[in-house]
Design a protein around this nucleic acid. Sequence first.
DNA 1: CGGACAATTGAAGCCGGTCAAAACTGGTGG
DNA 2: CCACCAGTTTTGACCGGCTTCAATTGTCCG
Lengths: 239, 239
Amino acid sequence: MLRNFLSENFRLKTDQIFGELTSDEHELLLKSSVTHLYKKGDVLFREEGIPAGIYLVRSGRVKKYKTTGSGTEKIFYLCCEDELLGYHALLSGEFYSDSAAAVEDSEITFIPKEAFLKVLNDSASLANALLKAMGHEFCLFINSITNLATKSVRERVALNLLILDEKFKPRESNGSPSAITLSRADLANMVGTAKENLVRILQEFKKAGLIEKSDKCIRILDHKNMIIEADILEFSSRR
Amino acid sequence: MLRNFLSENFRLKTDQIFGELTSDEHELLLKSSVTHLYKKGDVLFREEGIPAGIYLVRSGRVKKYKTTGSGTEKIFYLCCEDELLGYHALLSGEFYSDSAAAVEDSEITFIPKEAFLKVLNDSASLANALLKAMGHEFCLFINSITNLATKSVRERVALNLLILDEKFKPRESNGSPSAITLSRADLANMVGTAKENLVRILQEFKKAGLIEKSDKCIRILDHKNMIIEADILEFSSRR
DNA sequence: CGGACAATTGAAGCCGGTCAAAACTGGTGG
DNA sequence: CCACCAGTTTTGACCGGCTTCAATTGTCCG
């Protein structure tokens, strides 16, 4: 089911983290935080770097990715409005195992390590919220892994388009298809394939009337058949 | 670096969960727990199932995997002695997103949901230990995803053999190569390829003197070159 | 000794990665 | 306003790795 690939729960992330806190704690976080504008392409942090705090995406979108020795990069998550970023390394006490960069101009709030850990230490409900969120995240990653291992590139393209359709949906959605604005390179790195391959598959989808491509923007026109392409069987029709 | 693919920290899992607790809490967990012997192939839980508690691997090994509509299965983790199992779904409050089954005869302790959550609720240090563990887990999964997306099957076979070599290392290791006992099917599902493909690559490794295969057991003879096969560059030699 | 299952080998064919080049886009300066 | 350039997107062609199907060999147990 498509639901398993989406992180609806995460849209509430800011509410979760701030909602659970006392006004004192809230105050402490806000006081020590800094909000900054990142331009498209700017890097928030890099793998092997030392974590200094956590990030909060106020607006825009940030890709989480990992680069390999040969230079290719794999995007494994796209952070949208109100999502938290970079807390894994902080919690595990290790270096960053991944990198993060803005894929469009984004407003990001930075909360220093000390403030965050202090508040976390005092607030059991924040810890619980994080545990819950990470438990859910686990489910998403398992899906990614399974898909990469078992699905064809074509299926993965379809699936990622469906996921992005949700991620690019405006707050007040009127039901019209989202405008997915992501470079071919980024999209390919998300799917885990070569640009050329991705482009060809997009062409096929376009010819089949599944999507429309205007410049750098993709819209899904035929959700139903896109789900079939992605080979995600809904529960009722699975048996 | 190979280190990033291993879960050394997890070997301490039992110590972590029990070590952080007061004797009262410890008592509560033990009192309500049940230890049971699972035969090779026995399933602990299945995806879409309702979580009833967490599992503790006392001895033996348990595969965590996910099945696809078409029947193939992807193994994304192998749980060994002293590792915890099945807490993600419990924490996120969702159904299981994966399955777990014993790959050899295993002693497993089951701790009911209520007891675990109650203790978790009272013990901030347990919550912290879990946060830390999950933060580290995140790093492992990112590696899996990146590898699946960017490495060739041959490289993945080499890498998985190295990982398994660690996992099958006895408590008192004397430096001799571990005996990796895992069916070809399981190994293939771990790597994310077809059995036939795996077998052929194993043959090549054997001919190259990298491994020895006696029956159902594989031993790595040449670590150094296996690391080269896996294309994991050590930090010093990367530049 | 035989039957079931696991492991291996062989062969065919396609998916997808790679290299190369053309078409298109947006931005810049004359 | 147009011409030019750099970067992105698209198309074409090739080939090798992997999957798949099929059949054989090997191994464990009753």
